[in-house]
Design a protein around this nucleic acid. Structure first.
Length: 457
RNA sequence: GGCCUGAUGGCAGAGUGGUGAUGCACCGGAUUGCAAAUCCGUUUACAGCGGUUCGAUUCCGCUUCAGGCCUCCA
């Protein structure tokens, strides 16, 4: 099967050719850990989880190395620590724990490696030293180390910008310590209150971009297959990563393919903390939105498109999942997912197309492939029975319902439909669904089941 | 100001140079005492204006609108 991915740098779909079939290497920029993961954080996690699953299927479970970092050095974290008096370690440890729990709810697989920036400061210092030696970086007299952007001729190839067209300084004052407005910080000094590490340039901390370059070099080497992240990272973060890495390790090719997921909107509005249309994965789960439903909504739109998060889509997704669950109940999953679904994913992870194929499988009655394909996408994995409401009725309550149903059955027998319908309404008000079959009436608890109303029966 | 992306039926959302996905909703029908579920079927689209072509929703140009990036951001 030919696999194609859209490469941000080439601006077109390109055939995926692994560097080494024995180890496919994937790196994705993970979260900065200072707060609960919001729904926008969840999108890349799910998108690249689909990619991870797909690569593992195609090239072998043990032949894919997926690295997703935790950024635990950041001025937002520092600020929170100052504001709350909590230690940085306690903040980042807790946030990482939350993140892992949340991603588990979304059925996102653990990456092969989840390095933390703080574990790689030594590697960053080493790389910065190389850059200074290579004359790609310089130290100013205030303890900053800056990357000399114009020393890298290919700067701008990823984000398709020309250096001279960039209107730097128009919105942000250019610091005096930069020799060129395009230069960016590799290392900055820390005061007493701010976390810092000893370095050849004094006590300080790394700039944001260098961590990914250093971790990639340590964990994946000089060349790797796919680098992913949110579209907002293309410039400057990924552009800067390329510059740093290619200048410090010029023999390597860094990332072969760049994949970026689109942004998320809420009910048609830009997601922003300031405007209040913002929620975390945990908020959604507390509201009763199943993690599986969240995952499905995130896959319902192609990963490169903007995704509008609406109540409508949440309810659509949950309706479809319920339907599929009923269809697949008691069925065994086929050994491999449907080839139509795999083909959709092979075409730049076309998950909406994959769902269309799932619908085809459902209407064709091919439930075992429907189940295995859904599971391949990270859905319908838990025991089908466990997903249904787990409320247990007492014997007394069960007897009560059964006796009412018997009364109704007798009424129906003598064609007393008025009584039969009264009993139906009464039972349905409690949140119990009745289904008349030719010889009996089946009943089940709906999601709206209200135990308190059982008294009224 | 610079750069970039997108505009598909009531809604969501793929895709394609010529047989108009898929889901939800709607409508009609089957089934049902009723209801639910299920099944069958119908209808509705490619922002606008030009160009290329035998033929464009699909390629090119312009216009309009929307969004993003250029500052921390997934």
């Amino acid at each position: 099967m030919e696999i194609k991915f859209f490469d941000t740098k080439e601006k077109k779909k390109t055939v995926f050719k692994p560097i080494d079939l024995k180890e496919i290497k994937l790196y994705v920029c993970g979260p900065t850990v200072y707060d609960r993961a919001h729904i926008g954080n969840a999108r890349p996690a799910v998108v690249f989880d689909v990619l991870f699953r797909f690569l593992r299927y195609n090239f072998g479970k043990n032949c894919v190395t997926y690295v997703r970092n935790f950024t635990d050095i950041d001025d937002k974290i520092n600020k929170q620590s100052m504001d709350t008096g909590r230690s940085i370690k306690s903040i980042t440890d807790e946030t990482i724990k939350w993140y892992k729990q949340d991603m588990l709810q979304l059925n996102v697989l653990e990456p092969s490696k989840s390095p933390r920036a703080t574990e790689f400061v030594g590697a960053m210092i080493k790389q910065i030293s190389i850059l200074i030696n290579n004359k790609n970086a310089y130290q100013d007299d205030t303890g900053h180390v800056l990357f000399s952007t114009r020393s890298f001729p290919d700067y701008g190839l990823l984000s398709h910008r020309k250096l001279d067209e960039m209107n730097f300084g128009s919105r942000v004052a250019v610091s005096d310590n930069k020799r060129d407005p395009l230069d960016f910080i590799l290392w900055k000094p820390s005061d007493e209150k701010t976390p810092g590490w000893d370095s050849p340039w004094g006590r300080g901390r790394p700039g944001w971009h260098i961590e990914c370059s250093a971790m990639i070099h340590e964990l994946l080497g000089e060349s790797f297959d796919i680098h992913g992240g949110g579209i907002d990272l293309v410039f400057p973060h990924h552009e800067n990563e390329i510059a740093q890495s290619c200048c410090s390790y010029p023999k390597g090719g860094f990332a072969n393919i760049w994949m970026h997921n689109g942004f998320l909107q809420i009910e048609g509005e830009k997601m922003a903390k300031s405007s209040g249309n913002f929620f975390t994965v945990q908020d959604l789960i507390q509201m009763g939105v199943n993690g599986e439903v969240i995952r499905m909504v995130l896959m319902l739109t192609h990963y490169r498109q903007p995704l509008d998060w609406t109540r409508q889509r949440v309810s659509d997704a949950s309706k479809v999942l319920n339907k599929w669950r009923l269809l697949c109940a008691g069925k065994r999953a086929s050994k491999s997912p449907a080839s139509s679904v795999l083909a959709a994913l092979a075409d730049d992870l076309n998950t909406p197309k994959a769902f269309a194929e799932l619908h085809e499988l459902a209407s064709a009655g091919n439930y075992s492939e429907l189940l295995s394909s859904a599971q391949f996408l990270g859905l319908m994995e838990q025991d089908l029975n466990e997903a249904l409401p787990t409320i247990q009725l007492s014997d007394f309550e069960t007897k009560k319902i059964k006796s009412l149903l018997r009364k109704r059955f007798e009424a129906k027998k003598v064609k007393d439909f008025v009584t039969a319908d009264q009993i139906r309404k009464k039972i349905e008000r409690v949140g119990i669904i009745l289904q008349d079959k030719s010889d009996k009436t089946e009943w089940s608890l709906s999601p709206n089941f209200n135990r308190k109303k059982m008294k009224d029966l």
